[in-house]
Design a protein around this nucleic acid. Structure first.
Length: 266
DNA sequence: ATGGTTGCTTGGCAA
C-alpha cells in the first residue's frame, strides 16, 4: 500500500502534474493539501479517469482545502474544524484494506504568517492554537488506537536537519522553538512513529519544500521538511519505505512542495 | 535588513 501526501498549491492549475505523478508513481492513495477550490470545482472526473475513483474532499474557495483520491474505496469519517474558523484543513477517511480498517488523517496546518510574535501576528497565534487543539484531540479521541496514518503539510520543520540552517532559521516561522515544542506535543500525544525519519537518520538533511523565491532552488537547496507522515504503533511492523520525490519540484510550473510517499505491507 | 515568487483574482492577501 503506497500512500502519498502532497501540497499541490492549486489542484486545478496542477492537474497535469497530478496526472503525471499518478501515472508514474501509482500510489494507492493520494492526499492533497492547498487544493484552493470549492468541492464542486474539484477536478474529480480527471482523477476518476486515471483510476482514482474514490474521492473525499474538504474544500473552500481560494484558500486551503484538502482532498483524498484513492484506487480503493473510502469512507469519509470527519472534516474537523479545529479552531472553529471555518477553514478546510482536515479530512479523515477509512481506506478499504480487506480486513482491519486503515484510517488516514490529512492535515493542512496554518502557515502562521511571517512574524513569530503572537502579540503582533494573530496568524502565528492561530497556528499555535491549532497545534494545541490537535494534541488535545489525539489524546481525547484516542486517535492512535488501531491502524492510523496522520500526514500532510504541518508547516513546521522540527529537527535541526529538517532545515538548511538551524542557526539561521531559529527566528523564522516554521522552525521557531515554540512551534517545534508544540509539534513535539502532537507527536507525544500518540504514540506515533515519524515514518520519514524512521528511514533517514536525524543527522541527515531531509526536505520536502523549497521556496519559490530562490533564483535557483536546486543549487541553493535551502529546503525545509514541512510535510510529514506519522503512523500509529499498530503499523510499525508494516512500514517498509519512505521517499520524497524531489524531482517533482523541478517540473514545469511546480508546487513548492514535493510529494512524500510511504509504503506499508498490508 | 531587505527582497525575492506564486496563486487567486484584478487589488491585495496568503503562503
Amino acid at each position: 500500500m503506497k500512500i502519498t501526501t502532497w501540497n499541490i498549491n492549486s489542484v486545478r492549475l496542477r492537474m497535469p502534474l497530478a496526472a503525471h505523478f499518478l501515472k508514474t508513481q501509482a500510489p494507492d492513495v493520494l492526499c492533497l493539501q492547498e487544493t484552493k477550490c470549492r468541492d464542486a470545482e474539484f477536478p474529480a472526473a480527471d482523477f476518476r479517469a486515471l483510476g482514482y475513483e474514490h474521492i473525499a474532499i474538504n474544500g473552500q474557495k481560494g484558500y486551503h482545502g484538502v482532498a483524498i483520491v484513492s484506487k480503493r474505496p473510502l469512507a469519509t469519517l470527519a472534516k474537523h474544524d479545529f479552531c472553529d474558523t471555518g477553514d478546510a484543513r482536515h479530512l479523515a477517511v477509512d481506506v478499504a484494506t480487506g480486513d482491519t480498517p486503515l484510517t488516514v488523517h490529512n492535515f493542512y496546518v496554518p502557515a502562521g504568517g511571517d512574524d513569530a510574535d503572537v502579540e503582533r501576528n494573530p496568524k502565528f497565534a492561530h497556528k499555535l492554537d491549532f497545534l494545541d487543539a490537535m494534541a488535545a484531540w489525539i489524546k481525547n479521541d484516542r486517535v492512535t488506537d488501531g491502524r492510523v496514518v496522520l500526514l500532510g503539510d504541518l508547516n513546521i520543520a522540527p529537527l535541526e536537519h529538517d532545515v538548511w540552517s538551524h542557526k539561521e532559521m531559529l527566528k523564522v516561522v516554521s522552525h521557531t522553538p515554540i512551534e517545534v515544542e508544540k509539534l513535539g506535543a502532537v507527536f507525544r500525544a500518540g504514540p506515533w512513529i515519524d515514518a520519514m525519519r524512521h528511514f533517514v537518520p536525524a543527522e541527515e538533511k531531509l526536505y520536502t519544500w523549497w521556496s519559490y523565491r530562490a533564483a535557483d532552488w536546486a543549487a541553493a537547496n535551502r529546503g525545509r521538511r514541512l510535510d510529514h507522515v506519522l503512523v500509529s504503533e499498530a503499523l510499525a511492523g508494516a512500514l517498509e519505505r519512505s521517499s520524497v520525490l524531489r524531482e517533482a519540484r523541478g517540473w514545469t510550473r511546480p508546487s513548492d512542495h514535493a510529494p512524500v510517499t510511504i509504503e506499508l505491507a498490508l
